[in-house]
Structure formats: structure tokens, C-alpha cells
Design a protein around this nucleic acid. Structure first.
Lengths: 328, 328
DNA sequence: CTGAAAGCGCTTACAG
DNA sequence: CTGAAAGCGCTTACAG
């Protein structure tokens, strides 16, 4: 199967291989009759050009890389799905890299580059300076997904996490709540730092004391921590940097007899599938992750067209708040 | 960056490019001093061989394809993560294909083959005869993941879904339960059919009437359906083909005032992250999906070694039941 | 509009 | 143990 070469097609069609190649890559340069004949034979034989040869000869691969920090978060999978669908539409194939070992970030990146992809969609939890440095000289376009670029070297697509956290905090303040706590990851991810910043800003503006709770992210430990916390504190509203943490907190509270949403309101951040499977259903900030993936791919396509001298831009995608049963 | 070619390394090291290539591919054939010198320079310059050229010349790509039906299910992401980690260990890179359009299954498969991967990990919800036919003549090894192969042409790694469903059903029967309902997907996936079969077998053996509930899979619709069902039925135990359906059912029941686990016990199938975020926490069959991904990659590696004439085999992975709070 | 030819960056028999 | 050379399957100026 598929040992069919371009030579075979050329032979059957009675043309040179250059012509077959042109039919595939620059169809407008081939006479209609010839083109249709070649296309028919390609279809008949089920010919697909060898990706390696094509990539080597053209210095393009119609392959893009997605680099993600992990696959275990629902939000990331959903994003990849968005990218995949969009990539298919543009005729690109996707190579997946999981950059879960920050020690070896450099090694991973080299591999990404050596894999001769035409462009890279980069999702990174922690954009440190060393990361910026690492990717600065990448020979193909890079787009940050679900994170906004701080400088103008790279394009990005994401929501404005700071504004968003500010906004949702402010709305809860305006509803008369005062004891609003923010649960974030103990480890400081760039994205979550932005959320914290927005939250703190809203609290301070209202003359309220911000209160952060750092969660380690493992469900069992979180639960112990949350239970201890609730024994001595009684917040009115809990915002969490991730849905899973919000649900975890909510479950602990409910088990302790605290009524949600009457005595405690909980809001998550992301609107993953978890949110609808919780009881009560979780109110969240809806990050349109699928859409972000889609737009990132679109933007990357623009940059990969060599004829256009496209400038990398930052696209801020709209979020919305989905009000469900964990808030009044 | 990384425009460094093998020529550059050869030049700096004062050897021919054949030698550099050998250092990379057959180090034992190169004298130690030479080898170490070349390796040092490779490292210094951060050289990575161009994947396309390498693939074209060697007819190997050290890339494998993962073909999945979707990315939106937690179990699938977790499996991919397992595969990715394992692939990295073996020096393979991963190309991701989402085969979400069964109409175009043939087209997708051709693309997979044309992408010149060395092997394919195939995850498929519905192994129809036409699918078997489609992949029969694939020029590289194919392993089924999370699904057992029916014939001996392909290797596979997965759990024995039928036995597993039989087992968990029987355990619940032995505990004295009689009204045990099985919720499965309305659409008949091969995997879920096996589960149904095991469930039905256990029920019939005990002289009990099997009762199936077909769920469409969209949360909102499920809830309506489950609520209507519970208005006229009162099962003692509900088994569900997926965690999400189990949780959805449980949430509806709890809202209707039915006590879980006292009046109703619920068991899911997979043990995704959802299971620990539900309230009460869901008892489930634990499918070691990460481990399955790992073993599948290992098996594929065996088959990709051309020197060994490895026979494809079916590996049955152990499951276990994780008892949590949704059962007595 | 089409063909002959060079070349993409590697690997690997083949000699030595 | 090492080098010169052919070749992997394509693409794309260059002529015509």
C-alpha cells in the first residue's frame, strides 16, 4: 500500500514527474486537460506524496508542532482538538510535543525545531525569561496559545486573564460580598499570576483585603487543606484558578454541611467538562479554549505564508461568565 | 538556529559526513576517540539531524502515529500522555491524528500512512469490518490500544471489557442487589458492546433481567432522560459505560432526593479524573489507561525492530475496582 | 504549458 | 575503522 511513487503516476499519465508535482503544488500552472488526467490517476491509485521527501525538497512540511506542558488537563485537550480540526482544514498535519520536563526544555525545543515543522503553537504555563531566550531564534513562526505574549516578537492568542479575574471579582463585590478568597496553584504559573493580579486589584480598589490560598493541585491533599481552612474561615465567595480546584473546594464544603450557594459561592476558571458534572453545577469563567486553538492555527497559517510579510499580533479572545448553580 | 548541517559537524571534526552519520546511527562502528570528538562537537553546536532527510534516506522516521477518535474524553488524553512519555523514552516522536469523521476514515488513514511513520497506535471506538479492511495492508506495524484485536493480524493492548463488566456486575449481585441497570451509549461502540455483553451474562446467570439504558452522551439531554427514568424506576445499582454518564445520573438522582449510596449505588467505568471530583466520589472500574498507552508503545517498538520477527500479540491488562463513596 | 536536471540533508552498502 | 558515492522521493528554477 502506498508504495506508489510520483514516478508511477507520471508513467501512467504519460507526463514527467515535474508535471505531477506541479499538479499537486501549483495546479494553475498546468493545462486543464493534463491536470485533470493526472488528478484522476492520483485518485485511482490512492497516491499520497511521501511527506519526508516533500519536506526535504520544499523545505516545508505542512506539519505544525503543538507544544503543551501536559495532557492531563481537560482544557488542554480541548484546545488541541480545536487546533487539530483547524489544521486539517488548512491541510496541515500535527506533531505533538509534551514539554513536561522543564529541566529539558531546551532539549525538547531543539527536537521540535529539528522535526522540520512549518510553525509552532506553543502553550506554556511559565514564560520565564530563559524560555523567551530559548525560543527567540526559532527559524519558523511561533504563536503562543492561551497566553499573551509580553513582547512583540511572537504572536499570541488568549484571553486577558488579569482583566477577566478583575471583572469576575468586581461583579461579586458589587453583589455585596466582602470575604472573597482566591485559590490558586501553589506553584506560580504565569497565567495564574495574571489572574491573581486581577483579583487583587479588584479587592484593593474596593478597600477589601485580598486573601490567597495556594493549592498543591493533588486532589487528596487539597481536600485536607481545604477542610482545615474551612474549620477556621468562612468565606462568602471562593474563586479558583482552575475548575478542578473549585469543585474540590465545593465538595469539601458541602460535606462539612456548608450550603452552596446560600452560605458559600464558588466560581471556577475555564469551564471544562468538569463544571457540568459537579453538584451543584459550577459557575465559571468560560475560556473559549476550542476557539483559541482555532484562531491560533489561523494566525499561524498567515505567518507561514512566506509571500506575505505578516506581523505577529496579539489576539485577545472574549471570555464570558457562565452562571450556574454554585452562585446565587 | 539549527541550520547546522551534518556537513558543518563533519567539517569541524575533520571527518567525513559518513562518519558523523555513523556516530549517530551506529556508534559502535566508530573508533572511540573519533566518536567522542564528534559527539562533543554535535553537543557544542546543538546539532539535530533534519528529520525529513533522515526519514527519506533511512526509510525510517523515528516517528509514530497515534490515531484517536476524539480528544474530548479524559481517558484518551491520559492515554496519549502515557504513549508520549513512553515514546520519548524510546526516542520516538509522536504525530497525532484525530479520526473524528468516520466518513473520511479512508482518507485519514492514507494520510497517516503517507506521513511515513514507523508504526501506528490505533485507537478506535468502532472496529467495523470495513475498518479492518482499510488497515489490512498498512506497510508499518499497527497496534490497537484500549481495544483487543479480534484477529491475529494486529497486536493489541487493552482490558477485557466483557470480563470486567461481568465481574463488577456479579460482585454487585453477590452483595444481594437485584435491580441492576446498565447505562451505555446509544451509539453502539465496540468497546461498550463488550461491556454490555458481560453485564448481561452476569445478570442472566443469576436469573435476573438485564435492563439497558441508552444515553446520547450530551449532558443536558442525559439529565432529562435520567430524570424521566427515575420518576418511574428505582434501580438499586446503576453501572455506566463511562464515568461521565455515571456522575450525570448520580447528580440527577441526588437532586431528586435519592440517597447515594444508601438508596442507589452508582459505578462508573474508567476512573478518569471526573471520578474524584464528584460528590459523592464515584466507585469505578479503574482502566489503567496510562499503563495501556505505555505498553502499547513498548509493543510497537518491538514490532518496529526489523531484525526481530516479532509476532503481534494481544496483551490483556489488569483492571481493578476502586471502591469509593457511591457504593455501600 | 512542459521536461531535464539539480538539489534538499541525510544513510548506507561498497571499497579500502 | 573510514571515505567517496549513490540514492531516498520529491520540488523548483531553468530552458524551451
Amino acid at each position: 500500500m502506498n508504495q506508489i511513487k510520483i514516478y508511477d503516476i507520471a508513467g501512467s499519465a504519460g507526463v514527467s514527474l515535474a508535471t505531477v508535482s506541479r499538479v499537486l503544488n501549483h495546479p494553475e500552472k498546468v493545462k486543464k486537460v493534463t491536470r485533470e488526467k493526472v488528478l484522476r490517476i492520483i485518485k485511482e491509485k490512492g497516491y499520497k506524496p511521501n511527506a519526508n521527501a516533500r519536506g526535504l525538497a520544499s523545505r516545508k512540511s505542512t506539519t505544525i508542532a503543538i507544544v503543551v506542558p501536559t495532557l492531563t488537563r481537560a482544557s488542554i485537550s480541548e484546545m488541541i482538538q480545536g487546533i487539530e480540526n483547524s489544521a486539517k482544514k488548512f491541510g496541515y498535519t500535527v506533531r505533538l510535543f509534551v514539554n513536561d520536563d522543564l529541566e529539558n526544555e531546551q532539549e525538547t525545543w531543539r527536537e521540535v525545531v529539528a522535526s522540520s515543522v512549518d510553525g509552532i503553537l506553543f502553550m506554556c504555563d511559565e514564560m520565564s525569561d530563559s524560555t523567551y531566550e530559548l525560543i527567540a531564534y526559532t527559524p519558523v513562526p511561533v504563536i503562543f496559545v492561551n497566553a499573551l505574549s509580553k513582547n512583540q516578537t511572537f504572536g499570541s492568542v488568549g484571553i486577558d486573564n488579569e482583566k477577566c479575574a478583575y471583572d469576575v471579582t468586581k461583579q461579586m463585590i458589587d453583589k455585596g460580598n466582602k470575604k472573597i478568597v482566591f485559590i490558586t496553584t501553589a506553584h506560580t504559573y504565569t497565567v495564574n499570576e495574571a489572574k491573581v493580579k486581577g483579583y487583587e486589584k479588584a479587592m484593593k480598589q474596593a478597600g477589601l483585603e485580598p486573601e490567597l490560598l495556594g493549592s498543591v493541585g493533588v486532589i487528596e491533599n487539597n481536600e485536607t487543606q481545604f477542610e482545615e481552612y474551612l474549620q477556621t474561615h468562612r468565606p462568602e465567595v471562593v474563586l479558583a484558578a482552575r475548575d478542578s480546584m473549585a469543585i474540590s473546594f465545593m465538595n469539601v464544603a458541602v460535606k462539612m454541611g456548608i450550603k452552596v450557594p446560600d452560605e458559600l459561592q464558588v466560581i471556577g476558571f475555564q469551564n471544562t467538562r468538569y463544571a457540568q458534572l459537579s453538584n451543584p453545577k459550577l459557575t465559571c469563567v468560560d475560556v473559549p479554549i476550542y476557539e483559541i486553538g482555532n484562531q491560533a492555527m489561523e494566525k499561524l497559517t498567515e505567518l507561514m505564508k512566506e509571500d506575505v510579510e505578516a506581523k505577529p499580533t496579539n489576539t485577545v479572545v472574549d471570555y464570558q461568565i457562565i452562571w450556574r448553580d454554585s452562585t446565587k
